[in-house]
Design a protein around this nucleic acid. Sequence first.
DNA 1: ACGGCCGCTTTACACCGTGTCAATTGACTG
DNA 2: CAGTCAATTGACACGGTGTAAAGCGGCCGT
Lengths: 205, 205
Amino acid sequence: MSSDAPETRTRILQTTLNLLEGGTERGVRMADIAKQAGITRQALYLHFSTRAELLIAATRHLDDLKAANDRLMPSRKAKSGVERLNAYIAAWTAYLPEIYGTAKALLAMKDTDQAAAIAWNERMQDMKEGCEAAINALSADKRLLPDYTPDQATDILWTMLSVRNWEQLTLECGWSQEKYTNTISRMAHRLLVSDEARVEGNART
Amino acid sequence: MSSDAPETRTRILQTTLNLLEGGTERGVRMADIAKQAGITRQALYLHFSTRAELLIAATRHLDDLKAANDRLMPSRKAKSGVERLNAYIAAWTAYLPEIYGTAKALLAMKDTDQAAAIAWNERMQDMKEGCEAAINALSADKRLLPDYTPDQATDILWTMLSVRNWEQLTLECGWSQEKYTNTISRMAHRLLVSDEARVEGNART
DNA sequence: ACGGCCGCTTTACACCGTGTCAATTGACTG
DNA sequence: CAGTCAATTGACACGGTGTAAAGCGGCCGT
């Protein structure tokens, strides 16, 4: 009752993700997806009335597969603000390369398609909340560098961890994933975390 | 001899820039540009054989108007590495909002158009050289944080100053241009510049 | 075994934006 | 007056998305 109807739909989503991840230079078209899924282009529209809708559904599907929420919310474990920041950065930066293909496609539609823009923004907003939580934990521990308000620090962390920055550093600058993660992590610390020593006072700029 | 033929061409470039800067949600089409320039769409193709070509030409035109080189190379004035870094960041961040509309259009074409991708990459490479020069000056002064190699520091600065980051911080996070510039500048210092205290070694070269 | 529904196919077409082509106009110029 | 050159008019091809309608095969209930 629950696993016979959705069969094709799931297959479509799966092959969509495959193609997006494969990053077929020159974009992934509806026809490509249909062909790969072994159905006609028109059948695609029986399941998803629009390319944007399909992309969005694929993105959600990907999150389910990757158990995004579980991974991005290891907050419970974290004892200190610093630990929490570390955990969040580690989780997100590990997640990034896995969603990149799909994210890029959605990002590209953002400019021309209303629904895609909304979907993308929602996701990024969620991600930003994770940043905010980490920053707040840091702030609660008095380890947030006094130069910034929590809001400002959240914006900074959020921007540092953006898909575009990952893209630029790894794909354009040729950084390995490991180098990327390590460097970003150290940068975040240097930028946002105040020295342990002076837990009480405040810094000289 | 020199100023009668290019008349229309220049007008096209000018109105292209206007439209791009206006950021007419839903993209700027060839027909829009033609209409605005007071010619037919087809006449556009008498001057620029392709949309990408027009966009690229418009970008170059914009650089000329804004005297990009003059602004981005105030290196001669800078006495120290730190000064040079400051000068570069100030010049680039002031330049950014002026080119944003055009940059965004080119950036969007990058994914689908070979020529656009090349043009964009060239420009970003130029910009990166500016970053590199600043970092090298810093390094020569022994003021580059020892955590990074000059290459790495260049990548970091280059990424921090990306168009996408400007877009995110100002347009998405709502930072004012002033806040953006100040914060980025302070971040760059904190991330890349080591404390003045230990100038001890030799400074020049 | 029949009628009906369902998921998918086939075929065809509309729309939009880019790019091409050919014939024409109109102005300026030698 | 002929030539040329910029631009116009109108028509069309292509690729990609999205729509519409008719048909087909399997499966299900009665």
